[in-house]
């Protein structure tokens, strides 16, 4: 990349030098449009983050789009139940690339306080890839802002070309994931193994 001190010198002269990647990522990260997708209590904290006290609009999340076709961030806020899971995957499939998912709250990360349940999906990352996780029940609005900034940092670091190219630019990454079907006892399949990589826990 361009040397920072050279950039600074040129800027003082009124010449702005940038690269395609920086410009592209800067535009994307400062105008992330979230999908208006609140499931349960965390949705209220999400709305409170978008309200006047902890303003999400100053980070670019100005409009919450109701339609997935116009959004590029899905904040899964609230408990994901097994009945709702196919609809979430369908919504994710309908979002255009590049798209990101923030898993907000304990319930969306791993089932949360309702983990021992027959209708609770133990984490939305069983079916769709998640970029940022926010723990908390519910997480404070500052935590959501922090996650938003983490996501912005992540977008900033995505490269457009080369070996470490961003995932959505590679040819063979899927942008749609299979929708689980309702089975007799559980969702079928119970998890999408291409996406769900729980860390192996070594125990005695």
């Amino acid at each position: 990349m361009i040397d920072e001190s050279l950039k600074g010198e040129l800027q003082k002269q009124g010449i702005w030098v940038t690269s395609m990647q920086e410009l592209y990522n800067w535009g994307r990260k400062n105008s992330i449009w979230p999908l208006q997708f609140g499931l349960a209590c965390c949705a209220i904290e999400m709305i409170a983050t978008a309200a006047s006290r902890y303003d999400l609009a100053r980070f670019g999340g100005e409009v919450f789009r109701p339609s997935p076709r116009q959004a590029d961030l899905m904040i899964v806020a609230g408990t994901v139940t097994k009945k709702m899971a196919p609809q979430i995957v369908r919504l994710y499939n309908q979002m255009p690339d590049p798209k990101y998912v923030i898993s907000m709250g304990a319930c969306a990360i791993s089932g949360g306080p309702f983990k021992q349940g027959y209708n609770v999906l133990k984490g939305i990352d069983r079916y769709i890839p998640v970029d940022v996780y926010i723990p908390g029940c519910p997480p404070r609005p500052e935590a959501l802002l922090h996650a938003f900034m983490e996501l912005q940092r992540k977008i900033d670091g995505q490269k457009l070309s080369g070996a470490s190219q961003a995932e959505f630019l590679k040819e063979n990454t899927p942008s749609e994931y299979p929708v689980p079907a309702f089975g007799a006892h559980d969702l079928e399949p119970p998890a999408n193994l291409d996406v769900f990589h729980p860390p192996a826990i070594e125990r005695a």
Partner: peptide
């Protein structure tokens, strides 16, 4: 049913 979080079943334990 989209937010049925089975509080009753959890309450059994």
């Amino acid at each position: 049913g989209y937010l049925h979080r089975n509080h009753e079943k959890i309450g059994e334990n």
